[in-house]
Design a protein around this nucleic acid. Structure first.
Length: 194
DNA sequence: AACAACCTCAACCGCATCAGA
DNA sequence: GTCTGATGCGGTTGAGGTTGT
């Protein structure tokens, strides 16, 4: 590494100048004000103009996970839980994709909920995944459990996957996804069809 | 009542990807 | 085509709360 130490110390100093840890109500108010003025896209501008000693990432995260309108907090319903389980089986640890199918829920919330509730539940019940660790689950789900899902749905006529009342068409509507996601979904569909 | 163990969740970190120059 | 800064994502951490002994 040819990093010069002056550069590093500038970065270190900048880091030290930033607030860290829990957000205060006052910080929330300032951030909301700045987003109101500048929109919720230009985070470098927002971070500067808000007058907060917070980095862009921190501002964005706070907005996405807490301040954003229409956020549901806590009380994940049975229906939502069921959907999370199904989506996780299908998508693996792609929390943002899963969150996109659950209005008002954030990727962080779903990730936390999965790690604290569902992963254990699944192990207790032993119904979905057997013989692999939680850490392995994320990567394995991408292909192996998809295959399992495929087998299960074909044997049961594929009806069970729609047991909960979510809109299947909407669920598989990836029209708003990024090209890289679409590519992945296309691959998944090809894999399912094979 | 006191302490330890466990749980939850907000926030941070590092990396990957994207977009513009 | 390359570089650089911005953005987004998933994994991890740690503070605070809860439960068990």
């Amino acid at each position: 590494m040819a990093h010069n130490s002056a550069d590093e110390s500038v970065k270190e100093k900048a880091k030290k100048d930033l607030n860290r840890g829990a957000w205060t109500a006052e910080e929330d108010r300032k951030l909301a004000e700045a987003i109101n003025t500048h929109g919720s896209k230009q985070w470098t501008i927002i971070a500067k103009k808000a007058g907060l000693k917070r980095c862009t990432k921190s501002c964005r995260l706070r907005w996405m996970n807490y301040l954003r309108p229409n956020i549901k907090r806590g009380n994940i319903s049975d229906q939502e839980e069921d959907l999370i389980i199904r989506l996780h089986k299908l998508l693996g640890n792609r929390w943002s994709l899963i969150a996109a199918r659950l209005p008002g829920r954030t990727d962080n919330e779903i990730k936390n909920y999965w790690n604290s509730h569902l992963s254990k539940k699944k192990f207790k019940q032993g119904t979905v995944i057997e013989g692999i660790s939680i850490k392995e689950m994320g990567s394995k789900c991408d292909h192996e459990t998809v295959e399992e899902e495929n087998t299960q749905s074909s044997s049961s006529g594929g009806e069970d996957t729609t047991k909960s009342s979510f809109d299947v068409d909407d669920f598989f509507d990836f029209s708003n996804e990024k090209p890289s996601t679409l590519e992945w979904v296309t691959k998944f569909i090809e894999f399912s069809d094979a």
